[in-house]
Every structure is written in structure tokens, then in C-alpha cells.
């Protein structure tokens, strides 16, 4: 247990100034579901904690042109309740719904789920599959970084010590596009994912796959895109055979480790099985479900 000061900065400028003054000993608190546990176990020992949970620029869910902009401090329960997210980013809505428990969803934030950089974070595969970018604010202004570049390893990101994640920008899902999320846990609630995955597919008038994104979680140091699987589908018909081939490629290209939740080979089997199921769900007529539990 460490002692720390608690500050609720009224503006982003105050936050940045505070972080600068705290040097390397400041921590940003959004939902706290991860930070509090880390502080209590001694993994994190901040001197000052900056609470951004009410900070306006980090709070909204806004549709802007072809994008959906979500504040970093938007809570999972708000994502679940948002009609805009369900419509424009249904896989994210599904991931938020399946995450942990209601109590946690009422606190945990989108930004927190990303910045924690757990390879098993549930919100990450939907964002990765949708080519989301992150808005990072630092002393030198803002920069926009693709999520894929932001995550650099388990618990590691390219976020600077005096930088904050303020917004997540998701390209909206077009009318012909479908997306979905699947989570495999040891139980149906409050489970750290054994694997999780999200898919986004756009099938053209000609019945061929125009674009596809498949993101896998908990099978590599960071969530990853299954590029080989995607490549195998683009320009081809979503036939059972092609989908199976893509699923097999996804299982091949992931790099799972063995841990207390599953063995590496077990994870590969799950990736193949669930990628196939996910692709089938995406290609079914009627579109992807935006909610519901899968495992």
C-alpha cells in the first residue's frame, strides 16, 4: 500500500501540468478497476493520482462523419447502453457486455482497458479489427496513433510518461459491413479471456469479400490481426471451405503461450474453432448480433 495525493484536474491542461510536475510518479485514474488492484499489490506506486473520470473531453460518445469518437473515460456500461456504439461498432458493444461483471462495467473504462495493455483485454480486438486509432495528448500537443502500433507488449504501450489517452476513434461500420466479438472464458461471467476475437467483414454486391478484419486476443504478447487469414479471404467468396481455410491460417499465425488458463496448443485449437464460428456468424444472413454471450 502506498500513500498518494488525489487530484481531480478540471481541464486537460491541468492534467498535463500535474503529470509534468509529478514527473514519473503520476498515475491516471479513470475507472480504477485495474489501478487500485495494482496499487494495493505494490505493482504501481504513484505519488499522485489524477482522476479523469469526470473530465469532459474524455467523456463523450460522439458520431462524427464516418467515425465514432469515444472518450477514454467512457465506462463499459455506457458503451453497452449506447445505441450509437451498437449501430456503428457492434463488436465493441458485444465485448463491453461480456466483460467481467455489472459492477466492474459500471466503473471500468474504455481507455483503461486499452492502456492496461493486457493481451486478454476484451475491448481491444473489436477496436483492432475496426482499425481504431487513439488520440494521445502530451505537452507537445496531440498525436493520433493506430491502436496496432500503440500496444507494444504485455502491459506495454508507446504512451509517454507525461502523455494521456484522451479519445478512441473508430471508423464507423458501413451499411454492408458486419462485425462481431467472441470471448472464451473458463466461466460465463467475470472471466479473464482464454482467447477473445473480433471480426469485421464487408461483402460486396458480387458476393465476394471486399474487406475483412480479424483480431485475436490472448494468443500473442498483444492482441493481433490475423493478416494471413484476412489475406486468404479478400476477393474470395465466403464459402465454408474458404472460411475454414482462413480459420486454420489464423490458428497458425497466432503465437499463444501456455499459462494457468490454457496451454498454447489448446489456445490454437480454440482460435481455429472460434474464428470459423465467428466468420460463419458474420457471413450469415441477417447480420451480426450486437449482443449476447458466446461462451
Amino acid at each position: 500500500m502506498v500513500y498518494f495525493d488525489y487530484v481531480k484536474p478540471p481541464t486537460l491542461e491541468h492534467l498535463l501540468e500535474g503529470l509534468r510536475q509529478a514527473r514519473f510518479e503520476g498515475a491516471v485514474l479513470a475507472g480504477g478497476t485495474d489501478l487500485h488492484v495494482k496499487i494495493r499489490s505494490g505493482v504501481a506506486c504513484p505519488r499522485v493520482v489524477f482522476d479523469i473520470s469526470d473530465l469532459a473531453p474524455c467523456r463523450g460518445i460522439v458520431e462524427q462523419g464516418n467515425h465514432l469518437r469515444l472518450g477514454a473515460a467512457v465506462r463499459m456500461s455506457e458503451i453497452v447502453a449506447s445505441a450509437a456504439v451498437r449501430r456503428k461498432a457492434p463488436a465493441l458493444a458485444a465485448a463491453a457486455l461480456q466483460m467481467s461483471s455489472r459492477q466492474i462495467r459500471n466503473r471500468a473504462t474504455l481507455g483503461g482497458n486499452i492502456v492496461t495493455a493486457s493481451p486478454a483485454a476484451d475491448a481491444v480486438p473489436p477496436l483492432l479489427a475496426a482499425d481504431a486509432t487513439l488520440v494521445l495528448l502530451g505537452a507537445d500537443g496531440t498525436r493520433e496513433v493506430p491502436l496496432a502500433e500503440f500496444l507494444t507488449g504485455p502491459g506495454k504501450t508507446c504512451l509517454g510518461k507525461s502523455e494521456v489517452l484522451t479519445e478512441v476513434v473508430i471508423p464507423s461500420q458501413g451499411p454492408g459491413c458486419r462485425s462481431h466479438f467472441v470471448k472464451v472464458g473458463r466461466r460465463k461471467a467475470q472471466a479473464i479471456s482464454i482467447i477473445n476475437l473480433a471480426g469485421r467483414i464487408d461483402i460486396g454486391q458480387d458476393g465476394l469479400v471486399r474487406d475483412v478484419g480479424i483480431a485475436l486476443g490472448a494468443v500473442a504478447p498483444t492482441a493481433m490481426r490475423a493478416r494471413q487469414a484476412e489475406k486468404a479471404l479478400i476477393g474470395r467468396a465466403p464459402s465454408a471451405k474458404n472460411l475454414a481455410e482462413a480459420a486454420a491460417l489464423a490458428a497458425e499465425e497466432c503465437r499463444p503461450i501456455s499459462d494457468v488458463r490454457a496451454t498454447g496448443s489448446g489456445r490454437r485449437l480454440l482460435v481455429e474453432a472460434w474464428t470459423l464460428r465467428l466468420l460463419h456468424l458474420l457471413c450469415e444472413t441477417g447480420g451480426a448480433r450486437s449482443g449476447g454471450r458466446n461462451s
Binding site: S101, K188, A189, Q190, D259, V260
Partner: peptide, 16 residues
């Protein structure tokens, strides 16, 4: 112990 918490040591929830 590799399962030192209720996050790692999983018991059935109401959904199970």
C-alpha cells in the same frame, strides 16, 4: 500458487 486470486481461481458464477 498460480491461481492466487478469485480472478485466476475461477468458481461458478450465476451464469454457469
Amino acid at each position: 500458487s498460480k491461481t492466487p486470486s478469485f480472478a485466476e481461481y475461477v468458481i461458478p458464477s450465476a451464469l454457469d
